[in-house]
Lab assay of single mutants.
Amino acid sequence: MIFPGATVRVTNVDDTYYRFEGLVQRVSDGKAAVLFENGNWDKLVTFRLSELEAVK
């Protein structure tokens, strides 16, 4: 189960963010908004829950 605050990895091989890890900001309607941070940039991207896996 994916909840806000969880760290997730993108599993969709066709996505630009494949294998990126980010922090879930919100979850609704089968989608999750994931925040990616890297140095001087932040990006908030929405994914279907089926495209994400929780990082242990």
Rank of each mutant, 00 (worst) to 15 (best):
D42F: 15
R26L: 12
V13H: 08
N40I: 10
D14P: 03
T7W: 15
E51P: 02
E51C: 05
T11S: 07
R48I: 08
R26F: 15
D14G: 09
N38R: 11
E37C: 13
V8I: 05
T11H: 04
D29H: 09
Y18I: 01
K56C: 09
N40C: 11
D15I: 05
K31P: 01
T7F: 10
L44W: 06
R26E: 14
A54T: 10
L52C: 02
R9A: 05
Y18H: 06
F47C: 03
F20K: 12
K56G: 12
E51Q: 06
S28V: 10
T7C: 10
L49M: 06
E53W: 05
W41Q: 12
V45R: 10
N38F: 15
R26A: 14
L52M: 02
F3N: 06
G22V: 03
N40M: 11
V45A: 06
V34I: 08
T7H: 10
L44P: 06
R26H: 15
R26P: 01
N12E: 05
R26N: 14
Y18K: 02
W41R: 09
T46D: 08
S50F: 08
F36N: 00
T11M: 08
L49A: 03
Y17Q: 03
V13S: 10
A6E: 08
T11W: 05
G22R: 00
F20C: 13
R26G: 10
T7A: 08
L23H: 07
A54Q: 10
L35W: 10
K43N: 09
R48K: 14
W41A: 11
S28N: 09
R9S: 05
K43E: 11
Y17K: 03
W41G: 14
W41K: 10
Q25R: 07
G39E: 09
I2D: 01
T46H: 08
V24K: 00
T16R: 14
V27M: 07
G22I: 04
E37T: 15
D42A: 15
A32H: 01
N40F: 09
A32R: 01
A32I: 06
K56H: 13
A6V: 14
F20W: 15
L35H: 07
R26S: 15
V55M: 06
N38K: 11
S50R: 05
L49C: 07
L35I: 07
P4F: 05
S28D: 11
